[in-house]
């Protein structure tokens, strides 16, 4: 027998919202989903009229839904934003080829300009070439570090005010857990912030911070949005995988777990007198870093010197080596549009 929509619109419900347990029809679900993202944007004052905003687009479900919803809200509520798609091509054969195709489709569907930046352009190395050097054990370190900076660099090139990423509530809760498990107090403090910004680097924000992954997938499905879904073909981070499954198991027993963990992360404060790494700018490339020389520059130096393990794990040796070669900085590549 059909269940009536909890919003009392008179229609029958199509789905049970994981976040609230409400049974809603499609239209009422769309409305609730969009309103929550809108409220997040307004309450956290993420944007200002006239802002140039780059959407970090991977072709996956989160960024596809983010691009769709931001375009819709920008029109519905007249935010006055100038929206762009920004993609990073890591240079992984058979992985990005398909997902970049999806991003190109987003560009057409959402009528937004797209800029694709490749690791090769930015760093002189594709991920395929890096894996050939370092093997598959540490390649996710490289990929993650390079990707983070690639977005900043791309944003700087595009002259945007803000980069929005598709991080959802599950991602944030998972990161809180990971930082607890690793004892990484500095990241634990930062990881729940909806807006992050380095000294003179561009604002990063997460409009889907309070949006459940399940609802993103349901929204994409019912809106018939096309996205790309495969794991990266290189070994996934097993430790993170466990944290994710643990979270999914908790969510099944009590759906509010995800919001509760985010809330715990937000309320957490570090006692005075605890030494925190300070945030500054890399002396080589100028992007935000907790060290004198940023992780990307250290990893890159290792690759270029044929010492790919440089910068993985304890970095004293890396610092010594780098100190000796800081002269040859300024060789930063410029990227043309």
């Amino acid at each position: 027998m059909p269940v009536p929509c909890s919003a009392k619109c008179g229609k029958n419900a199509t789905l049970k919202r994981p976040k609230t347990g409400d049974a809603l029809c499609k239209e009422c679900f769309f409305w609730a989903f969009e309103m929550e993202v809108h409220n997040t944007i307004v309450n956290a004052k993420l944007f200002q009229r006239g802002n140039k905003v780059a959407i970090a687009a991977s072709g996956g479900k989160d960024s596809t839904v983010l691009a769709y919803v931001l375009k819709l809200l920008n029109e519905r509520y007249d935010y006055g934003l100038d929206l762009f798609l920004l993609s990073v091509d890591e240079g992984i054969t058979g992985y990005r080829d398909d997902s970049l195709q999806t991003v190109k489709q987003n560009k057409i569907d959402y009528e937004m300009p797209l800029k694709i930046l490749s690791y090769e352009e930015l760093y002189g190395w594709t991920m395929d070439a890096i894996v050939a050097q370092v093997g598959r054990k540490n390649n996710c370190t490289f990929c993650g570090v390079f990707r983070r900076q690639a977005l900043d660099r791309g944003a700087a090139l595009l002259g945007v005010d803000c980069v929005v990423t598709g991080h959802n509530a599950d991602d944030i809760a998972e990161t809180v857990l990971m930082n607890v498990l690793r004892g990484d107090i500095a990241r634990l403090q930062r990881c729940t912030s909806i807006i992050t910004a380095g000294a003179d680097s561009i604002m990063r924000c997460k409009p889907l911070k309070y949006t459940y992954e399940k609802e993103i997938v349901m929204y994409a499905y019912f809106k018939r949005l096309v996205y790309f879904s495969t794991e990266c073909i290189f070994a996934p981070n097993a430790y993170r995988g466990h944290a994710r499954m643990f979270l999914k198991d908790l969510e099944k027993i009590r759906p509010s777990s995800i919001m509760d963990i985010i809330h715990s992360g937000e309320r957490l404060s570090v006692r005075d007198g605890i030494k925190m790494p300070e945030r500054r700018n890399c002396t080589r490339c100028g992007f935000v870093s907790s060290q004198e020389i940023c992780k990307a520059c250290v990893l890159l130096e290792g690759l270029n010197r044929g010492l790919p393990r440089l910068g993985i794990g304890k970095s004293n040796k890396a610092k010594l080596l780098l100190a000796a070669t800081t002269e040859d900085r300024g060789k930063k590549k410029t990227v043309d549009f």
Binding site: V3, A13, T14, L15, K16, A23, E213, K214, V217, M218, Y221, F222, M245, K248, D249, E251, K252
Partner: peptide
């Protein structure tokens, strides 16, 4: 099903 897999029957959430 493993948590994280959605099930729909004729486009209706199986939880309903």
């Amino acid at each position: 099903v493993r948590p994280g897999i959605l099930v729909l029957v004729n486009d209706e959430d199986w939880e309903l």
